[in-house]
Amino acid sequence: MHKTSKDMVTEAKGKIQNLDPAQVAAEQEDGAMLVDLRDEPEIRENGRIPGAVHIPRGMLEFRADPTSPYHDESLNPEQRVILHCASGGRSALGAVTLQEMGYTNVAHLDGGFKGWMEQGQPVENG
């Protein structure tokens, strides 16, 4: 039997730390790196979380890998990294991927940007 994308996200959420918007805001204040995995049009249309670094989901593995020519120097396997997307699916899958790549302190924003906005957290124009 094949897995659905929903199955994969549910499985991923069981392997990672799922944070609510208030927890993410507090961790961001304490220096955690927040990574926005959404595509550029989503950010332009809906805005962004202040201070979040944009790395599209399709580039995450390449930006996170220190041996890749596309490596983002701001990503460090030792630091606290919190991923988010629109609703939490891509970020859950991405967090599992980072763990598999050796990142030891990864989490994701459960409910994503949508949940962030619903909780009245700050948003800036995209």
Rank of each mutant, 00 (worst) to 15 (best):
N46H: 15
K3I: 08
V123W: 09
G126V: 11
P50Y: 09
I49A: 01
P66C: 05
G112I: 12
A26F: 05
A92Q: 08
G51R: 09
H2I: 13
R90E: 03
E61N: 10
A32T: 06
S5P: 13
I43G: 02
Q17N: 05
E29K: 15
A26E: 11
V9P: 00
G115I: 12
A52E: 04
L109Q: 04
R57H: 14
V123A: 09
I82D: 00
R90D: 03
M8R: 12
L60H: 05
R57N: 13
E11R: 08
A92D: 04
V24K: 01
E42F: 06
K15H: 03
E78Y: 07
G58A: 08
E27N: 13
L93Q: 09
E45W: 10
F62P: 00
R38E: 01
S68C: 10
H71W: 12
E42P: 08
A86L: 12
V24L: 05
A64R: 13
S68K: 12
Y103D: 00
R57V: 14
L19E: 00
L60C: 05
D7A: 01
G47S: 09
L109P: 05
K114M: 11
A12S: 09
T67Y: 00
D7L: 04
T67I: 04
E124D: 09
D110H: 04
K114N: 12
G126W: 10
D65L: 10
I16Y: 02
G112L: 07
S74R: 11
R44E: 11
Q28R: 14
M1Q: 12
M117C: 14
L60S: 03
G102Q: 05
W116N: 03
R90S: 06
H2T: 13
T104D: 02
P77Q: 06
